[in-house]
């Protein structure tokens, strides 16, 4: 059985890409399943989805904790999520990044590491940073759990004609541009300069200790420090940031009203500067601004 885990952000299509891969496997007569891991439903929040492919019927109803393949749809996830958690030593890591795969080598053995600038391709062809089908192109190029033609068939079945054509074009470009590192060929002494994916910062997801945690819960699971979401910096979710052009701003406050994370506050001059600790880059402000004073710009990938 082949087990594949997708790491994305809410709205990037991680669930769809798992389903497209399963659909492609089904068209080849294989057995497959795809499923999401649901958490708080928020655009930009780290999300996980899973796909299993096998020659035999699949009877598992558990999350994938030791995947054969991990796909990372957004490079910013590397800072906050331990994407390689449980990844098999014979496994493959595929990352949306402008950097080459050698930047992601770290201390454990892997079969292959691959990168592709999926965000760049998505913006160029689709006009928005939905990277799911593009990463599938990189997957087919790297390890080919299904045929390219099966994936394109699945895309044609899923999307309308225009969107299917654009997604297939993006997927094929990713297939061409994917950079692959075969780890057995890679000299081990050069491993030390890698950007090790890790989740040790303060934004790392809390891993509760299993034993006796219940004893520590407050009466009725009551929270004694309300408003503690202030310490939850959703700014780390951001792939795009809003830039305000003060010459066009009429101080109407629409951005302040509609921001789902209350990242806008009014300053003494009456403008609404954004707090990038909380802005998750959803772009609602830019979309709704009546004078077009806000533009969404792509965040630079760390180290590029």
């Amino acid at each position: 059985m082949l087990e594949i885990r997708f790491h994305g952000r809410g709205g990037q299509g991680a669930v769809t890409s798992a389903e497209l891969l399963a659909e492609a496997a089904l068209t080849e007569g294989k057995h497959a399943q795809a499923f999401p891991s649901f958490g708080p439903e928020r655009r930009g929040a780290p999300v996980t989805s899973y796909c299993r492919i096998d020659e035999l019927p699949i009877r598992l109803r558990t999350n994938i904790s030791a995947p054969d393949i991990v796909l990372v749809l957004d490079p910013s996830l590397l800072k906050t999520v331990n994407v390689t958690d449980g990844l098999k030593e014979t496994g493959t890591l595929i990352i949306n990044s402008q950097k080459g795969p050698e930047h992601f080598v770290h201390n454990h053995k892997l079969h292959k590491i691959a990168t592709v600038d999926a965000t760049g391709i998505a913006l160029q062809i689709l006009g928005r940073s939905i990277t799911n089908t593009i990463l599938l192109g990189a997957l087919i190029r790297t390890i080919a759990p299904v045929e390219l033609s099966s994936i394109t068939a699945a895309i044609q079945k899923r999307f309308d004609q225009k969107n299917a054509a654009l997604n297939i074009q993006a997927l094929q470009q990713a297939y061409q541009e994917t950079k692959i590192l075969n780890m057995p060929d890679y000299p081990t002494q050069e491993n030390q300069f890698a950007d090790a994916p890790a989740a040790t910062g303060e934004n790392a997801p809390v891993q509760p200790q299993a034993q006796s945690l219940w004893i520590e819960l407050e009466l009725g699971c009551l929270i004694t420090n309300p408003g503690n979401s202030k310490t939850y910096y959703t700014g780390s979710w951001r792939s795009f940031y809003p830039l305000l052009n003060k010459d066009r701003c009429i101080k109407c406050g629409i951005c302040w009203i509609l921001c789902p994370d209350a990242a806008y506050t009014q300053d003494t001059e009456g403008f609404y500067p954004v707090d990038l600790n909380y802005c998750k880059g959803c772009g609602i402000c830019a979309h709704e601004c009546p004078t077009g004073a806000i533009t969404m710009l792509q965040e630079k990938e760390a180290g590029v």
């Binding site: 809390v206 509760p208 945690l213 219940w214 819960l217 699971c221 009551l222 929270i223 004694t224 309300p226």
Partner: peptide, 23 residues
């Protein structure tokens, strides 16, 4: 002296909440 009562719970804590209720 505000507190939050009735907040949402992730799967990582729900079982513990039921355990402490039972105990």
């Amino acid at each position: 002296d505000p507190v939050t009562i009735g907040a949402f719970t992730m799967p990582s804590f729900f079982t513990e909440a039921k355990k402490i209720h039972d105990e």
